[in-house]
């Protein structure tokens, strides 16, 4: 997987799609990236991920987008949409 920090997404949904694919690939989920509801919770009942899965996502996000997720960014871990928004914000700031 290319880990270029210069990934340019013109739309928020472009980043969401890229992130969905990253999550599915790194966790080997048996779900199509397009089938992930961007507003559904990633953890627990939503996508059924556990805390270790969240760590794997954080490691993959750090590699691909050069954005470090920390434990105090709990809100960013809520959903695909929240995570994409957090990444977009971190990359522009």
């Amino acid at each position: 997987m290319a880990s270029s920090p210069q990934l340019g997404f013109t739309t928020a949904s472009g980043l969401e799609q890229d992130l969905a694919k990253l999550i599915v690939d790194s966790l080997r989920l048996e779900v199509a990236p397009g089938d992930i509801d961007p507003a559904a919770p990633l953890f627990g009942d939503g996508l059924g991920l556990d805390s270790i899965d969240m760590l794997e996502i954080a490691l993959a996000v750090s590699k691909r987008y050069a954005v470090e997720l920390r434990s105090e960014n709990r809100a960013a871990l809520a959903s695909l949409r929240a995570l994409a928004a957090h990444i977009a914000q971190q990359r522009t700031s």
Partner: peptide, 13 residues
């Protein structure tokens, strides 16, 4: 505390 989304991130830190 275990079983929260950020448990393992806190562990990593």
């Amino acid at each position: 505390p275990p079983g929260t989304p950020d448990t393992m991130l806190a562990v990593k830190e």
